[in-house]
Structure formats: C-alpha cells, structure tokens
Nucleic acid binder design. Sequence first.
DNA 1: ATAAAGTTTCATTTATTTTTGAAAGTTTAA
DNA 2: TTAAACTTTCAAAAATAAATGAAACTTTAT
Lengths: 168, 168
Amino acid sequence: MEFKEAKNKFVQTWGALGSQWGINKTMAQIHALLMVSNEPVSMEDIMEELQISRGNASMNLRALMDWGIVYKEYKAGERREFFTAEKDLDELAVKIARERSKREIKPALKILKEVSSIEAKESSEEEKHFVDQTSKLYDFVLKADNMLDKMTEFNENWLGRLVLKIMK
Amino acid sequence: MEFKEAKNKFVQTWGALGSQWGINKTMAQIHALLMVSNEPVSMEDIMEELQISRGNASMNLRALMDWGIVYKEYKAGERREFFTAEKDLDELAVKIARERSKREIKPALKILKEVSSIEAKESSEEEKHFVDQTSKLYDFVLKADNMLDKMTEFNENWLGRLVLKIMK
DNA sequence: ATAAAGTTTCATTTATTTTTGAAAGTTTAA
DNA sequence: TTAAACTTTCAAAAATAAATGAAACTTTAT
C-alpha cells in the first residue's frame, strides 16, 4: 500500500466511524485529513481532496472549531485561511468528552431527574418500578459523567495513568 | 407531571439520545419502554405505545436481542411472545461496550494498523507525519479499548469501583 | 393435515440528514 | 471607496436511513 492509498483509507475509515457515533461523515473526514497533515490546509485543498462543496466544507469546519478540535491559522502574506487539527490525542479525547457531556449528557440528566421525581403516592407497582428504575439510571449516568470530568482533570496522559490504576 | 406523561418523556428522551449516538430512534425507544416496565411486554403493546408498525417493532426487537440487552420471554398458557430489557445498568453498560468494541472499534483498529504500516522509506515529511500520527492513534485506541475490556472484567458495580480508584 | 395465531422479511415509501450552489457578506490592499 | 479574493449562509436538491405493510413463513392446537 502506498501513501496516497493509505491516507485515503484512513480518511474513509474515520468518516465511517464518525457516522456510527453520530458525527456526520464529512465532519469526521475533514478532521481525519487535518489530523494527518503535517501542515495547515486551506479550504480549497480540503474541498479538492474530499470532493465536497465549498458550503459543506465551510459549515463542517465551523462545527469542528465549535467543538474546539480544529483551529484556524493565518499564514504570513497569505490572504486565505488555513486549518489545523488538535493532534494531541489526550487533549482531543478530553475535548470531545466535554462537548458531548455538555450537549447531550447534561440535558438528558435534567430530564431523568424530572421524570424520576413524579409524585409516586398513588403508586401502583408499575409507577414504583418506573421511579425506581429512572432514579437508578439518573445515578448511573451522573456517576459516569462525573467520572469523565475527573478524567479530564487528570490532564496529561490521563488514559495511560488510568490504565495503570485499573491494572493495579 | 403524572406517570403517563413522565413515561412518555423518558421514552422520547432516550430515543433522542440514542440517535445522537448512532442508535436508531425506535430501537432506543423500545429499549426505554422495556426498561421501565415492571413486567414483560408483548409486541402488540409495544406497537401500540410507540405507534409503530409490526415490521419495525419486529426488526428492532431482533436487533436489541442481538445486542444482548433485550430478552424474549414466554408466559405459561400464552401463545404470544413477551419481551424484557436487561435492567441491571452495570450489565447493560458492559454489553453495550462489548458490542460496540466488537462491531466498530476492532475493525477500525485493524485498518489503523494497516495504514500505519506503509513502507515509509521514500519518506517525505508528510509521509513521516502520517505514519507517526496513525501509529499514535492506533496505540491510543488500543489502550482505550483494552481499558473497556478491563472494566467489563471488574464485573459487579465496576463503575462505582472505578470512581473510587480515580478519586483516590 | 389444517387453520388460526403469531412472527419475520423485504421491496417500496416516507422521513431525516446531509450536501450543494449561488447569493450575500467580509476583509484587505491599493 | 472600490473591487478582488475569499468565506458564510441557507433554501432547495440529493443522499441516506428508517418505517411501513402485505406476503411469506412458523408454530401450535385440534
């Protein structure tokens, strides 16, 4: 396998993986492309390499920057904007975890709290079970979310350190 | 908020959360419904509650069973089949982690290994960076995947125990 | 064996998500 | 200030994913 083929395979794979985890394919592909580029890439080049439209490139780059995992760069004497990806994997994982927590887990927790707090006085077995189960779910998700927070506080190389701890 | 409303809200929320993580909405909704039901539910009832077709119900129940998080049950003297969800949350998380690892992470690792192993002899800076970055990614994903494995070996209440370890 | 009760499958339809492309908006240099 | 170079926005189109429903299939009781 030669370089170009390998690069393409990587970009496609990362894109597919993204889809399966609820991140749109192009967004994941752009990220993949930037991750393996040793220098900043222009929007033009991204469009060219991925065969996508200007609008698509623009919107997904914006989304990646909102996630905090892609940065805009300016080159001296160049009018165009260039883009780079966060390349430190620990940092990348932390940022993704933070964003998903903020956007998805936190709102879900709020709902779980609400629904698990219904007045369970006129309680059939059915209602009791509902309150019990959603409360447990709330506790579980909260615990998992807090764990993520803790991990992100670990800073440098938290994954390696965590593995050590677990292996103990 | 009364029971019926809370239940509906929970099912909707779980469904939306599923979508965001690459699990189809109905599949997540059926799972939610079964999670909070204190007794086995027939396909008929699932169709009724979620307002979905027989085919849809059948296929998503099958998928949930393939994931190992929903079980078929038979009631004495009843011709129909009934369904229940795995209700132990530790067990649920372990099963979901195992399946996603098997279906998505493992194949991705295989590709990462391939593309990071290209002959980097005629190596431009560009190629060197590609090999370096994909190798790091391989190591990272492998480590994370192994950690999941370890966690699932913890068995009972692994999340709680893990939190303790991390807090240390 | 057969028919009733129930389940699964899958080609087609429907809904959702993503992408395009052209117009509007910005920025910069002269 | 203007016009060239570049970016963003968003309504409409295209692509993708999910749902329907009717026919085929299975199981069970008689």
